[in-house]
């Protein structure tokens, strides 16, 4: 079952067709979403009424185009802000974590490492509600004790960022740790041997080497945050990020403006994905 071992033409043919069908299965829903963004109809469904750019550019209802839909644009803005904060916070903590687990030795390290991984197996909805419950508990307590409402602990952007930060950090830690594990620590020793302090050695030698991983992890964090739904749903306040805003509209009955947003998302994600692939495959030093 490898190319060097002969197998029947029939087997190979069937296998290739199967893999082909799989890729059709993967691609179809996305293609359909993209195509119907250009349908000149009030519904993203058959029949095809001819192509139009109205769902992107039209300025008036009922075919209000994406670029003039204040609500959607605003929710994109919210998602963007949330994603930026989440990415930065996750990257900083994940870098610390990577150094902690790859470089330091301390009692209980294995247990803490397992705990670090647990967000991967906590369903997003539960992570969301647990943070919601805990932050409310603290906020209620503060209100009782000091008669002061800790506004940021109520559902809203801060909580959304915290909730996403909770599990995205784990993923970023795995990406950065993998790179740090491959890093030849004799480079750091060489830097110290040439007169650098430990911190200077990390700054001048280790971090530049981690740069591709940091960029890759940053892109992954940004996309995961931008696209997150389950955790966000539980923590969202009045400012809805894009996924929540789209979900609300989808429940009401969708118009092709959602296809337009989706297409935009796909293009943006695709570009980010390409950038990340580029940085991941880049050889160090080049």
């Amino acid at each position: 079952m490898i190319p060097t071992i002969s197998s029947s033409l029939y087997f190979r043919g069937t296998y290739a067709v199967y893999v082909g069908l799989f890729f059709i299965f993967l691609i179809t829903p996305l293609t359909v979403v993209g195509i119907f963004a250009f349908n000149d109809s009030m519904f993203p469904s058959m029949p095809w009424n001819g192509g139009t750019l109205a769902w992107f550019l039209n300025e008036t209802e009922p075919q209000l185009g994406l670029f003039h839909d204040e609500d959607l644009l605003e929710s994109i803005g919210v998602s963007f802000v949330v994603a930026c904060f989440t990415t930065i916070a996750s990257l900083v903590l994940a870098t610390c974590n990577a150094f902690l687990f790859e470089r330091e030795q301390f009692p209980g390290k294995n247990l803490l490492y397992i705990l670090m991984l647990t967000p991967l197996v906590i369903p997003g909805v539960i992570l969301g509600v647990s943070i919601l419950a805990f932050s409310s508990t603290i906020a209620n307590w503060a209100e009782m004790q000091f008669d002061y409402d800790l506004e940021f602990l109520r559902p809203g952007i801060t909580l959304v960022v915290l909730g996403q930060f909770a599990f995205i950090t784990t993923i970023a830690t795995l990406v950065i740790s993998a790179r740090l594990r491959k890093f030849d620590s004799s480079l750091e020793e060489a830097a110290m041997n040439l007169g650098a302090t430990r911190i200077a050695a990390v700054m001048t030698v280790t971090l530049p080497d981690l740069k591709p991983a940091l960029i890759g992890a940053g892109i992954v964090c940004f996309l995961m945050s931008f696209e997150n739904f389950n955790t966000t749903l539980m923590l969202v306040g009045s400012d809805a990020p894009l996924t929540i805003a789209m979900f609300d509209r989808l429940k009401e009955g969708s118009t092709p403006v959602l296809n337009a947003v989706s297409l935009l998302l796909m293009v943006a994600s695709g570009v980010l994905a390409l950038i990340s692939v580029f940085f991941q495959s880049e050889k160090p030093g080049s």
């Binding site: 030849d184 060489a190 041997n193 030698v205 080497d209 740069k211």
Partner: peptide, 21 residues
């Protein structure tokens, strides 16, 4: 004296040249 202050320098087994520079 910590390693970064010692008047000795070392050529490492795998040279440890900084690939990013």
């Amino acid at each position: 004296t910590p390693p970064n202050r010692r008047p000795v320098n070392m050529v490492f087994q795998h040279l440890a040249l900084f690939p990013t520079m």
